[in-house]
Design a protein around this nucleic acid. Structure first.
Lengths: 219, 219
DNA sequence: CCAATAATTTAGACTAGCCTAAATTGTGCC
DNA sequence: GGCACAATTTAGGCTAGTCTAAATTATTGG
């Protein structure tokens, strides 16, 4: 249906609209490791196919059709990442590039069967939501760790800015996405949080800047 | 490492060398649904990369390097087919095209983990052997057709006495070496076998004397 | 308001991979 | 041997996707 390059551009635009609210030519080029002029060419092509609205000199947005296609790609990417971690035993930070290839494999029945095989997961190993087949995102009630109640049991579900560095830091401390812990103490120093938590019988601590999203975890 | 098209050509050449002992330009073109002139271009390119030996006007063979690459592709293809059937519940005749895409995903760790996850299978759902990581094929247990179980899917792998006449007879009936079929009925008349089988949607029959070697073909 | 600058688009060129048509080569038969 | 025919290669052209360099547009500070 669409070429690899077309799909990559659509996903990049979608990602930028999510992250920054706008998708400029140079930012798309940067994400895809190409040049702005190449992006312009592709924007014209995708606009011609009705996937993208291109406002020359003012960036691109997605049409309904383009958004649907982007969500389908996100769905495939996140399902494959879930498969790679849950079934093949990869670590969550090893799977991105392979999933980047797998998401371009084109087969509706494949992705629906994979989804079922994985038990219709709602979030991927990075804590990101997996769109359903119609592009609907699952809802999640999250609380910034900076506002979470000390002494209560929580579960880490995502990091707001998706920082791999922070995730790795926490991972090294035994706190991963999906992991439950008890928030033991929290101190704020202008924009930075000093956290102490209890998990798996140990007391651990770290200094973090980003917003950790958690859910209160009953029992 | 190699482009999709390069990989497709290498696999086609390997397949023809297996099936026919020779890989001619027009046969490669036919397998890949392209034209002979396109194949010639690619043969030159692959010869330049040291994967193929191209004897102009006399077809192509694979170098050691090319053979290794072909076996790696066959391995990936058959492991993915096994996954699709064994884990995702596809029927064995629905998986070829998807596996054709998946085999081009490039990641050593992925394929080794997939292999382990599937329990290091030695044959794929079509009964074809899966090369190991070093390109070695598993040995296959063969069964005389006079002792093969009626109703099961089999694959003709050899004729014990190598009779040309028999091969020609079977060939005319659409049953060649390497061909899978379902053994529908078998009657013995002093040393001679009356066989009926189903292959490619047709019921066929023949009277044969030689020992046909087959393998049971898990469905 | 306009000149400097940054972002973007346009123009023109290149490669990979494919095609058709024409030229070439190999083969088999008289 | 040489001719007919099939297979193959060569020649030349096309498209998708990329690039660099030049031209254009938007923005912003003085």
């Amino acid at each position: 249906m669409f070429s690899r390059s077309e799909e990559d551009h659509i996903k990049a635009i979608h990602g930028l609209l999510q992250d920054a609210g706008q998708a400029f030519t140079k930012d798309i080029a940067e994400r895809l490791n190409t040049r702005a002029s190449s992006v312009t060419d592709m924007l014209k092509k995708l606009a011609g196919k009705g996937l993208v609205k291109h406002a020359p000199y003012h960036g691109a947005t997605l049409t309904l059709k383009g958004r649907r296609q982007a969500l389908s790609l996100v769905r495939k990417h996140r399902l494959w990442e879930t498969f790679l971690v849950q079934r093949l035993g990869f670590a969550w930070d090893e799977v991105h590039e392979v999933a980047e290839q797998l998401e371009h494999v084109s087969s509706e029945p494949l992705i629906e069967r994979l989804d079922a095989y994985l038990g219709h997961p709602r979030f991927d190993p990075h804590g990101d939501p997996i769109p359903d087949r119609d592009g609907r995102m699952p809802e999640r009630v999250t609380v910034h760790l900076s506002e979470a109640q000390v002494g209560l049991r929580h579960r880490l579900v995502a990091v707001k800015d998706g920082s791999d560095a922070l995730l790795r830091l926490l991972d090294a401390k035994g706190l991963a996405i999906g992991r439950a812990f008890i928030l033991a103490a929290r101190q704020e120093f202008d924009g930075s949080l000093q956290l102490t938590w209890r998990s798996g019988g140990c007391d651990l601590s770290a200094q973090v800047a980003a917003h950790l999203l958690t859910v209160p975890d009953p029992a």
